[in-house]
Design a binder for these strands. Structure first.
Lengths: 202, 202, 202, 202
DNA sequence: ACAAGCGGGACTACCCGTTGTT
DNA sequence: AACAACGGGTAGTCCCGCTTGT
């Protein structure tokens, strides 16, 4: 059985991601990860030179996946409409689709988990997280600006923070959802965000 | 024998609150608390029978303070206007006032910190947190319903989740603010929430 | 049973000293020390904040004991004779007395053990060791100089290194003794040193 | 397939020798050796079946080199003089030559390093070390006995331990040199040893 | 002859909580 | 109300050595 290092590494990352979202980083022991991944310490420390190294690898992967998601949603939205306002509304709608039908609260966002744990939140890691958020801002703000130039909004608003409100709603809804034990929170909040954008620009 | 006007118990709570928001609960050792509070283990375990007991005491106090804040804001808003929609808008505005002029990102919300750490989030504690959130929902939803009956909103919306959006914006803005390193996030996001409510009902 | 922290600390030091001389520092686990001292990890780390801290405490104590030994021998030698050459010879003789009748090789010198283990041999620790050695040099060189001025030696020699030869013989004899398994090495070598000094100055 | 004229096995031995003298055996991890030698675990365990095996190979090689040195020095000394006393004095002198001009303290003797680390000092290894030392004793004692029979010494001394004093000075000087940070210690101490022998027999 | 991957254990450091004492 | 001392356990790290493949 030729050993496949890459798949082992992936398994460690998947297991760790879930455990850290649930328990927090410090409360997630390496032994817990080993047990769930079905490996031993030797294997773990072969792939990651420390627990902190794992943490860094996790956010990096998470940021990459986030970037792919952004790209995918943008591409699809631009195919479905050529109007920038509609594109934004569709982007929100597609996001809602992703989280419909949950039977329990979403496990949450790694960035949020990290930002409440200083030891994880080195400047390097914070940079990765913020880059990821600014990616969304950049894409949305472009479209909002285009919408604004086509038809002036009902109120004068700051477009940067309006774009940021998309992620804000995500982060906030994760917390609310977990606290209230309600899986539907995120979808409902996204709908409000869509309403707001729609009211502003039409 | 109270020292410095601040009892030992209070000092432990204050120090712990800050440390836990920054580091997370598991990564905050009792020794760290002792050091910052300038006391010894004996003193700590005299006031709290375990670390978990401290965690519970912290949320309880936090929930109480939150309740006082809610009451205070409602009372002031009702003094300033008798129109329910205006009262809501004023409540948001007063909240903005509280967080204007920060020079660094707000340390965040204990509920959010707890909800990403399972060991802290027993059903009892989750209950305390959700009660606190439902308090705000109850107050806001009453006023929104009254506003709705005075003038039908431009779009049909779910009032419960519209009320929840207030806390959602708080929680989300804390995360965004810490990640982007921007102290102004919360105020800006609250303004969008106020805009949304205003657009809906006028 | 009132707990006596000082005696616990002493027991740890005694046990560690013996174990480290026998096994080397790195090969002496804290668990070995705990077992021999009859204590637990909690007690150990209460008294020493790290293993390195123990190492430092050990040399410091060893250097102090060495200093007391030097003082004691000098005082006795000066009581037994007022002639500086005789005093030196007596000092060597008294040292021989201390190591007569061993039934197995002497466990050795902590300085020697440390100097072959870089991690222990920080500049601070090396300073402690060298100070201890220079103490002996200083005392001996004074007397040798006085002897020299009374009667010129048969050969012109460097007095500093002649004084150092005393400790050199100690260190060398420990190694030889352990390697050959011969408890008598040290006494015999000290006798040669005494012979040499005697031949030189008479 | 020898690289750089130095086989992998040789490189492992050279690197290990230096590291062990500096750090001690237990504190020298195989990984450190691999890194310095630029090889991987596979290569190491191909040449040595365990870390203990490496330790044995190291002393064996060291003892061999020591034996060659002894032979070389004896041969040269016997060429330079036919008088046994002179031969001894020349042997010491040639040894001094070897260690003149050091710019930092000599790294020390593997035997000394081993004798403070029980796990390395099996009876087998101790045998190798003591054989090496007894080799020198044998050669020197022969010559000293011959010198004694030509001219009775000024003092009656034990010739075995007088011969041993040569190695004793070596071992002791290594320790002193490392501790005082003085590269010249060994040469100076050897000179005293030569003085002593000269005074005794002339 | 050597490289990648991993098993399993040992070690240091630290942590939570208790006890005896004041 | 608080402190010194300590019990007992666990976390993260590292380390040695084996296996499989080339």
């Amino acid at each position: 059985m030729p050993r496949d290092g890459e798949s082992t590494r992936e398994r460690i990352l998947n297991v760790s991601h879930a455990l850290i979202l649930a328990n927090g980083f410090a409360a997630t022991s390496i032994d817990m990860i080993l047990e769930q991944a079905g490996i031993t310490k030797g294997a773990f420390f072969y792939h990651f030179k420390s627990k902190a190294d794992l943490a860094r690898a996790l956010v990096e992967r998470y940021a990459e996946m986030d970037h792919h998601l952004l790209t995918d949603i943008v591409v699809r939205a631009e195919k479905l409409s050529s109007d920038p306002l509609q594109q934004v509304l569709i982007m929100v709608g597609l996001s809602q689709e992703l989280f419909e039908g949950l039977t329990e609260p979403h496990p949450g966002c790694l960035f949020a988990s990290y930002c409440y744990q200083k030891e994880l939140f080195s400047e390097e890691v914070r940079g990765i997280c913020s880059t990821s958020m600014l990616d969304w801002r950049r894409v949305l703000v472009d479209k909002l600006r285009a919408a604004q130039s086509r038809r002036p909004p009902r109120m004068t608003v700051d477009l940067d923070s309006l774009a940021d409100m998309f992620m804000t709603v995500f982060e906030g809804a994760f917390v609310m959802s977990k606290t209230l034990g309600d899986p539907s929170t995120l979808v409902k909040q996204l709908r409000h965000y869509r309403n707001y954008v729609e009211l502003l620009f039409s």
